[in-house]
């Protein structure tokens, strides 16, 4: 089932299936090692509504602003 990145709960693992953003956003994310097909896990969800999420991806942690995170579609891996 495909959900938004922001819907994951802390500790859950997921794989990116789609990034619904423009070219600029895709490039910015790819530079941080975040692209279609990669596995990630949720480290922390926002403290206040619409805050950034922190995910762990290929060995390092990346903070992603809310506006960007909702455009990243993932499938939950159990």
């Amino acid at each position: 089932m495909t959900i938004q990145l922001t819907e994951l709960i802390v500790g859950q693992q997921a794989r990116i299936v789609e990034i619904a953003g423009g070219h600029h956003m895709l490039v910015r994310l790819a530079r941080m090692g975040i692209h279609k097909g990669i596995k990630l896990s949720m480290v922390s969800t926002p403290i206040i509504r619409r805050g950034p999420v922190v995910v762990s991806v290929s060995g390092s942690q990346v903070a992603i602003g809310h506006g960007m995170a909702i455009k990243i579609m993932v499938e939950h891996l159990s």
Binding site: M32, V54, S60, V62
Partner: peptide, 10 residues
Amino acid sequence: SPELLMEIPP
């Protein structure tokens, strides 16, 4: 304002 996207060092 652009969205935050930053690496968090250990």
